[in-house]
Amino acid sequence: MRLVAPTVFLALFALATPVTPVLAHGPTPQKVDQSVTIAAKPEAVWKVVGTFAAIDTWHPDVARSEAVDGNAAGGRRKVTLKNGGTLDEGLDEMNDKTFTYSYRLSDADLKALPVSSYSATLTVTPDGDGSKVEWLGRFYRGDTGNEPPEELSDAAGKTAMNAYFGNGLKGLKAKVEGGKAK
């Protein structure tokens, strides 16, 4: 067994610092899975969707998005939705070769989406002469307790996440195929 005592001590020190809002992961994860076909080559689609923080150029529900720390693992985007809520999301993986990226929510904002946490992956693959974009994820309802109110239930989370991903892909398709802004 490798001894890594100094690292561990440093890590413990870091952990002693109080950290603000924790994400509540409940015990019942839910799926979201949306896809769309686009009449354009994957390269052309990736040009639009492959910059993590540029979601405000194609997602119709997004008012603005700000890049933090670049377009690779560790990079983040601070998204402000048109409903006023914000999503602080961090990249776990960005692959410019296979046209896929994975990310997760850092801080829950129930005003943005009625979920307490999520991780998601967006992938662009060839589909005939065009492309298929799949956007899938795993999330937990807004209230992870045993008796969540209706607006923070699994069903409410499913509706909201499917709408957010679905609207986004429609916007992406319109942007790439029409070449115009959302």
Binding site: M1, R2, L3, V4, T7, V8, A11, A73, D92, E93, S102, R104, S119
Partner: peptide
Amino acid sequence: TIVGRAALGGM
């Protein structure tokens, strides 16, 4: 006590 740690990334 902790005697080892591996950074794997992801989840």
